[in-house]
Simulated scan of single mutants.
Amino acid sequence: MPGETVQPTPPGPAPVPVPGTLVVDTSRGDRLGEFRGAAGPYWSLRAVCGGVEWEAEPGAVRRATRKERLHAEIERWNARSRGEVL
């Protein structure tokens, strides 16, 4: 109707990524991680080159940009060239 104000709908919950998707945990200083799965209300993430998993709130996680994904792939290639097990 003319003159009617439409309120935007608030965003819904973030869709759960496919395991292995690279994401960024903004609550930890934009820490890049690989999505491992959902654990209750949290998402389990792991550093790209291995290490201990951590939990993040889904609302604080965003998909990695193309540049961030490329950087992560280079880190993986370098780790493999050094013989590190991933």
Score class of each variant (00 low, 15 high):
83 G>D: 07
32 L>T: 03
79 A>M: 06
48 V>H: 02
2 P>T: 14
58 P>C: 11
68 E>W: 03
22 L>Y: 06
44 S>W: 10
26 T>P: 06
39 A>Y: 13
71 H>T: 09
28 R>M: 08
79 A>D: 11
35 F>Y: 11
11 P>T: 04
20 G>D: 03
73 E>Y: 10
4 E>S: 14
12 G>L: 06
62 R>S: 12
20 G>T: 03
2 P>V: 15
19 P>C: 07
16 V>C: 05
20 G>E: 01
8 P>Q: 05
57 E>K: 14
10 P>L: 11
24 V>R: 08
58 P>G: 08
72 A>I: 00
38 A>N: 10
15 P>Y: 03
37 G>E: 08
10 P>V: 11
44 S>K: 15
65 T>V: 03
70 L>T: 14
27 S>R: 12
18 V>M: 13
26 T>M: 13
61 V>G: 09
8 P>K: 01
58 P>L: 11
78 N>T: 13
56 A>I: 06
60 A>K: 15
46 R>W: 01
19 P>S: 05
14 A>C: 09
3 G>V: 07
30 D>R: 15
35 F>I: 06
9 T>A: 15
11 P>Q: 13
40 G>A: 04
75 E>D: 10
68 E>G: 02
51 G>V: 10
29 G>C: 04
25 D>S: 05
51 G>I: 07
21 T>E: 11
23 V>W: 00
76 R>Q: 12
14 A>Q: 14
50 G>L: 04
2 P>K: 12
55 E>S: 15
38 A>P: 01
9 T>V: 14
77 W>E: 14
15 P>E: 09
53 E>M: 09
15 P>Q: 10
38 A>I: 07
72 A>T: 01
34 E>P: 00
12 G>I: 02
67 K>Q: 13
40 G>M: 09
78 N>Y: 10
67 K>C: 01
59 G>F: 11
48 V>G: 04
83 G>H: 11
32 L>V: 07
44 S>H: 10
56 A>R: 08
22 L>V: 07
46 R>E: 15
54 W>M: 04
52 V>D: 15
19 P>Y: 04
72 A>W: 00
48 V>L: 05
72 A>M: 00
27 S>A: 11
35 F>Q: 05
22 L>M: 11
41 P>D: 11
16 V>F: 01
6 V>S: 05
